[in-house]
Write a protein that binds this DNA or RNA. Structure first.
Lengths: 154, 154
DNA sequence: TCAATACAGGACTAAAATAGTACTGTATTG
DNA sequence: CAATACAGTACTATTTTAGTCCTGTATTGA
């Protein structure tokens, strides 16, 4: 568990397809065909991604969707946030309101630290990495993450 | 999002309470009182934790639950796995069977790498860290995690 | 022995989140 | 102005999660 939703998973596949291809603009029908995801679902995902400006939508004939930025500039953290809202592995991490158990809870602050460590990991991985060979990602995860962790100390 | 379940959250609070206190054995009623979590829920959580041998159960009068190991030896990753099953942020990460989209999916392998990075982070944080001051955890997250990332390169 | 304590196991209900679909509206093109 | 393709909303079904309850069993100690 500790899982992203299926829609979020789809979103990485769809964005990956857009990043891999040489084309600039994609209709939902094209993406449905190339990813094997049902067209209405593709549409739903891209609408959500559009709200967070990860993709641009172009209406009318010859319209479709485009990546709003270069694959190198779209992080996995951004994609997850666009689909599911702010990353927070506990309720405490995302909501500001104190929960019912706050007076008994001696743990709450710690999750924030853990959450930041995970978020940092996800921020360093980009869409470009998702479409590169896996071996390259392993290298990158190691080297970049070590420094990223240190940054989170601020 | 990217969230652990409430029950998992409870489990860290309950285990934290057991680690913080000087007592050895705790009844579900005591833990319900000290954490503010309903007694049947406390019971459910501890039963699950018992199955993974994170706590020992002692039946009968003067019975209750005990931590099965020292707080330093119980990782957050172990706690999450006990409550929710294997850590995997996508279905691909946990199930061996190929999914319907496998033939179209150019992403799947990458999630494994990301997942391992997150898992490593969670493995380095222990129950002892959860009950220590937050500032200490921040220090630890930074220093230990940098080296942990490098290990995942193997 | 037997009553009290306390966990074990399973079943069950209710609520919430998720997934997927459908329908109506609007912008753009040619 | 007709065809294309996204926008927005609503809806339904399914699954997951949360929480509770009940019956059973092991242990203790009077």
């Amino acid at each position: 568990m500790l899982r992203i939703s299926k829609l979020t998973d789809y979103s990485t596949v769809i964005l990956g397809e857009m990043a891999r291809s040489t084309a600039l603009t994609f209709t939902t029908a094209e993406l449905a065909a190339s990813t094997g995801i049902a067209q209405p679902t593709v549409s739903k995902v891209l609408k959500l991604l559009g709200k967070s400006s990860l993709v641009l939508s172009i209406r009318g004939t010859n319209g479709g969707y485009q990546l709003a930025s270069k694959p190198e500039q779209i992080s996995v953290a951004q994609i997850i946030s666009a689909m599911e809202g702010p990353i927070g592995i506990t309720e405490c991490c995302t909501t500001s309101e104190t929960c019912n158990h706050a007076s008994h809870c001696h743990i709450s602050g710690h999750w924030g630290v853990i959450n930041r460590a995970i978020e940092t990991t996800l921020q360093t991985i980009t869409l470009a990495d998702l479409v590169s060979p896996v071996s390259a990602l392993v290298e990158m995860t190691v080297s970049v993450d070590s420094s990223a962790m240190v940054q989170s100390n601020r």
